[in-house]
Amino acid sequence: MIRIKCPYCGERDHSEFTYGGDASINYPSLDASEAEWTEAIFFRKNIKGFQKETWHHLNGCRMWLEVERSTITHEIKSVKPCHPDLQKLMELKK
Protein backbone atom coordinates (compact mmCIF):
# COMPACT_ATOMS: atom_id res chain seq x y z
CA MET A 1 0.00 0.00 0.00
CA ILE A 2 1.31 3.41 -0.95
CA ARG A 3 1.43 5.85 1.93
CA ILE A 4 1.12 9.52 1.06
CA LYS A 5 2.18 12.34 3.34
CA CYS A 6 -0.66 14.82 3.01
CA PRO A 7 0.76 18.23 3.97
CA TYR A 8 -2.37 18.94 5.99
CA CYS A 9 -3.40 15.54 7.44
CA GLY A 10 -0.10 13.70 7.71
CA GLU A 11 0.86 10.29 6.34
CA ARG A 12 -2.17 8.29 5.21
CA ASP A 13 -2.99 5.12 3.27
CA HIS A 14 -3.51 5.59 -0.44
CA SER A 15 -7.03 4.23 -0.02
CA GLU A 16 -7.99 7.62 1.42
CA PHE A 17 -6.98 9.26 -1.86
CA THR A 18 -8.05 9.03 -5.44
CA TYR A 19 -5.63 9.25 -8.30
CA GLY A 20 -6.09 12.31 -10.50
CA GLY A 21 -3.77 12.30 -13.46
CA ASP A 22 -0.64 13.79 -14.95
CA ALA A 23 0.32 16.83 -12.89
CA SER A 24 2.77 18.15 -15.45
CA ILE A 25 0.05 19.10 -17.94
CA ASN A 26 -0.54 22.79 -18.42
CA TYR A 27 -4.14 22.83 -19.52
CA PRO A 28 -4.67 25.37 -22.31
CA SER A 29 -7.10 28.24 -21.95
CA LEU A 30 -10.74 27.42 -22.62
CA ASP A 31 -10.68 29.24 -25.94
CA ALA A 32 -7.58 27.39 -27.13
CA SER A 33 -7.75 25.36 -30.31
CA GLU A 34 -8.88 21.79 -30.69
CA ALA A 35 -5.27 20.83 -31.47
CA GLU A 36 -3.99 22.30 -28.21
CA TRP A 37 -6.70 20.58 -26.20
CA THR A 38 -6.11 17.29 -27.99
CA GLU A 39 -2.45 17.49 -27.02
CA ALA A 40 -3.35 18.24 -23.39
CA ILE A 41 -6.01 15.57 -23.00
CA PHE A 42 -4.91 12.59 -25.03
CA PHE A 43 -1.14 12.57 -25.20
CA ARG A 44 0.70 11.19 -22.20
CA LYS A 45 4.25 10.14 -21.62
CA ASN A 46 4.72 6.63 -20.31
CA ILE A 47 7.36 7.46 -17.75
CA LYS A 48 9.63 4.86 -16.23
CA GLY A 49 10.83 6.56 -13.08
CA PHE A 50 9.60 9.59 -11.21
CA GLN A 51 6.54 11.34 -12.54
CA LYS A 52 4.41 14.18 -11.25
CA GLU A 53 0.84 13.20 -10.69
CA THR A 54 -2.20 14.61 -8.92
CA TRP A 55 -3.94 12.86 -6.04
CA HIS A 56 -7.10 14.03 -4.33
CA HIS A 57 -7.33 13.53 -0.58
CA LEU A 58 -10.93 12.48 -1.03
CA ASN A 59 -11.55 10.95 2.39
CA GLY A 60 -9.45 13.51 4.19
CA CYS A 61 -8.99 17.24 3.79
CA ARG A 62 -10.03 17.08 0.10
CA MET A 63 -6.91 18.85 -1.01
CA TRP A 64 -5.59 18.20 -4.51
CA LEU A 65 -1.94 17.25 -4.20
CA GLU A 66 0.98 17.12 -6.56
CA VAL A 67 2.89 13.93 -5.86
CA GLU A 68 6.23 12.92 -7.33
CA ARG A 69 6.11 9.14 -7.47
CA SER A 70 8.33 6.50 -9.00
CA THR A 71 6.40 4.30 -11.38
CA ILE A 72 8.92 1.54 -10.73
CA THR A 73 9.08 1.42 -6.93
CA HIS A 74 6.15 3.61 -5.80
CA GLU A 75 8.70 5.67 -3.88
CA ILE A 76 7.36 9.16 -3.25
CA LYS A 77 9.85 11.99 -3.48
CA SER A 78 7.61 14.95 -2.71
CA VAL A 79 4.04 15.92 -1.94
CA LYS A 80 2.68 19.45 -2.07
CA PRO A 81 -0.66 21.17 -2.52
CA CYS A 82 -1.52 21.89 -6.16
CA HIS A 83 -2.88 25.31 -5.29
CA PRO A 84 0.00 27.82 -4.97
CA ASP A 85 -1.70 29.71 -2.13
CA LEU A 86 -2.16 26.50 -0.17
CA GLN A 87 1.48 25.70 -0.84
CA LYS A 88 2.49 28.99 0.76
CA LEU A 89 0.14 28.43 3.65
CA MET A 90 1.58 24.97 4.32
CA GLU A 91 5.09 26.36 4.29
CA LEU A 92 4.10 29.02 6.83
CA LYS A 93 2.62 26.29 9.01
CA LYS A 94 6.00 24.58 9.13
Binding site: A23, H83, L86
Partner: peptide
Protein backbone atom coordinates in the same frame (compact mmCIF):
# COMPACT_ATOMS: atom_id res chain seq x y z
CA UNK B 1 -17.73 17.67 -6.36
CA UNK B 2 -14.19 16.32 -6.88
CA UNK B 3 -14.15 17.80 -10.37
CA UNK B 4 -15.05 21.30 -9.16
CA UNK B 5 -12.38 21.04 -6.46
CA UNK B 6 -9.84 19.91 -9.02
CA UNK B 7 -10.60 22.82 -11.32
CA UNK B 8 -10.32 25.33 -8.49
CA UNK B 9 -7.20 23.85 -6.93
CA UNK B 10 -5.22 22.88 -10.00
CA UNK B 11 -6.33 24.92 -13.02
CA UNK B 12 -8.11 28.08 -12.08
CA UNK B 13 -6.19 28.90 -8.96
Amino acid sequence: MSWLEELLQTRWT
